[in-house]
Design a protein around this nucleic acid. Structure first.
Lengths: 346, 346
DNA sequence: GCGGTTCATGGGAGCGCTCCCATGAATAAC
DNA sequence: GTTATTCATGGGAGCGCTCCCATGAACCGC
């Protein structure tokens, strides 16, 4: 470093220096650190011990330059997602991803992608040389990012399946089926006129959950009434507004596509004096921590958000290590958590 | 790259290649890109035009190695903070930081620091060579991270002042004074027996807000009653539980140290049939988006969270560019937002 | 008109690491 | 005992960039 600044800083230990301390060559130390097979176990142990003692940390920039791998994963969340600031889903997902990265000796680089992130930012992500792969959460519609990632042959994984492109790797839950079961449960209980508050229809997850709702009705020979489908945006306000629109139509049950929106729906119901579950049954989705504490406790579909994040990380690392063109897919199980927001006896 | 993997990937444009295209040397291109003074304006324009056309992106790993700067900032949030997963404060702060970074052509690396991040992780952060500086949010107590950062001479900025060390740079709001004013306002309205629900007392912000509460009471000659001080942890549940503890003591007003906890307090009050503001006045802190939508709308102290994040970024970049030992401090203004959770006439 | 300065430019060195190849010792094979 | 094979190790090259120094052209003042 010749800019005079770094001299002032705590000087980091280099491989070369560590090698001198251990009485072996730079190459051997590198091999020991990176678990290469052809190293004498004794030598490896000695090197690792000294590295530990001197608290050696490889310089990731140098490693990135030399090997083309930095052990840094990018996490992209489009800020166009209104719920980002209100739905605890995101912090939980971020935590899951971050924690799994730590466990695998990787780091997370966060990209809250602003709407106009078209050209420049995408290429910045891909060519910066700092990132080995990318996790994309809550993709909106047919995001140009996906195309760019594919073109650049940069490994990536979606959290939530891609609506059209089957070559894309993803982790997801079976939203459609989970919702179908939840609504079928309401029907079995005796609910007759079940409405739904949907997620944004430009997100796959929003579409899938609505599909599940329709499938459940059709499974009982009921023709879904478009009037009973109110669009929401995964925010509390969205749920509140949607519930207000549904109220005049007098549904006796509502499937709400997220717990956060269910919270808003409950607020709307409280305002007009409707009681849950006596006047109206409610089922949510997510099983956020708050769901159990609502009044009444919310019956909801539990999805393993932390595991979703951890799985995405593991898939991505796998994909980076063995860049195999075959897409990987994992679908994690959900669970209908029965609480007090549906009446069990009519 | 000799591992055969990168060959398959979209080959990134290098400085050297760009230089050839522009008919100048590598050095001149570097100077043009980095805004060095001694470049012919015409040459610079030509180089930049070609760079734009070919969509050149410097390799940050290489730049980091050569210059010791990567234009990446670390953001550390201890996961010990219970509220991380429920309080929208954090997403808003993260968004503010991320957005400011984008605007300044920097990136954010996220570290959700797990409790046992003592040795290894800290050094990893500092010596990875990937990070120019660090923003630390919601530090707990006297975090060892601060000591490590200082020792390594790594520039850093706190969001929220340091409890003891005056050499540390930070951005904050004047929590004490903001709360003092809020509670003084309640006293002026005629509230007699004002309790408080505090933040965690191992966080400076928790201590400062409690101090403000005490100062307001003392300002009116009232001796703060320790019984009327209920500890919370900035979560909704914490607020709920604290309110339940306060109820038997029959306060007529409560200052709650965060809106999220106020939400919990309102739930506790609703459960026992207490009306706000008639039976009990309430003031929160943060002015989260939800505060205005509560029933009744919550009177609260607004703090500019996005600006807090943006300011932290700007301070840090400044600190990196000119590593001046003088600590920088910025205190942003708050505002008491009057809504319906305090009775104005007795 | 000539020495001194300014300044745009080019090329060398090197940041810390990984990968490849060469070396030589130990082992296996006949 | 000799040749083939395995394998631990060391050193060179180079990843893409920035910084320093050298070069030479243009300009200044007297």
């Amino acid at each position: 470093m010749n800019n005079g600044q770094k001299d002032v800083q705590f000087m980091a230990l280099t491989l070369e220096e560590l090698a001198k301390q251990a009485g072996v060559s730079r190459s051997t130390v590198s091999r020991a650190i990176n678990n290469h097979p052809n190293v004498d176990p004794e030598t490896r142990a000695r090197v690792l011990a000294i590295a530990e003692k001197l608290n050696y940390q490889p310089n990731l920039a140098a490693r990135g330059l030399a090997a083309g791998r930095t052990r840094v994963l990018g996490l992209v969340i489009p800020t166009g997602v209104a719920a980002l600031f209100s739905d605890p889903y995101f912090p939980i997902l971020i935590q899951g991803i971050s924690s799994a990265c730590n466990a695998h000796d990787h780091s997370v680089m966060l990209w809250l992608a602003e709407p106009e992130y078209e050209r420049r930012t995408i290429h910045q992500i891909l060519q910066s040389g700092l990132i080995d792969g990318v996790i994309v959460s809550s993709m909106l519609g047919n995001d140009p990012l996906i195309k760019a990632l594919t073109e650049h042959k940069k490994p990536f994984v979606l959290v939530g399946r891609h609506p059209t492109d089957s070559r894309v790797s993803y982790v997801d839950v079976d939203n459609r089926d989970a919702v179908r079961e939840a609504v079928a449960y309401m029907l079995r209980l005796g609910y007759q006129r079940i409405a739904t508050i949907t997620g944004p229809q430009d997100m796959t997850v929003g579409v899938d959950r609505l599909d599940g709702y329709r499938a459940a009705l059709r499974g009982r020979g009921i023709l879904p009434d478009p009037m009973l489908i109110a669009n929401g945006d995964f925010t509390e306000q969205g749920g509140y507004a949607a519930m207000q629109r549904l109220l005049p139509l007098e549904p006796d049950g509502v499937f709400v596509a997220s717990d956060t929106m269910a919270l808003g729906a409950m607020r709307a119901l409280r305002e007009v004096g409707k009681r849950i579950p006596d006047d109206l049954g409610l089922i949510g989705f997510d099983d956020l921590p708050l769901a159990a504490r609502l009044d009444p406790p919310l019956t909801t579909v539990r999805q393993p958000v932390t595991r979703l994040g951890a799985t995405a990380v593991e898939m991505l690392i796998d994909l980076i290590q063995e860049p195999d063109p075959r897409p990987r897919r994992v679908v994690l199980p959900t669970e209908l958590v029965l609480r007090g927001s549906c009446r069990t006896a009519f």
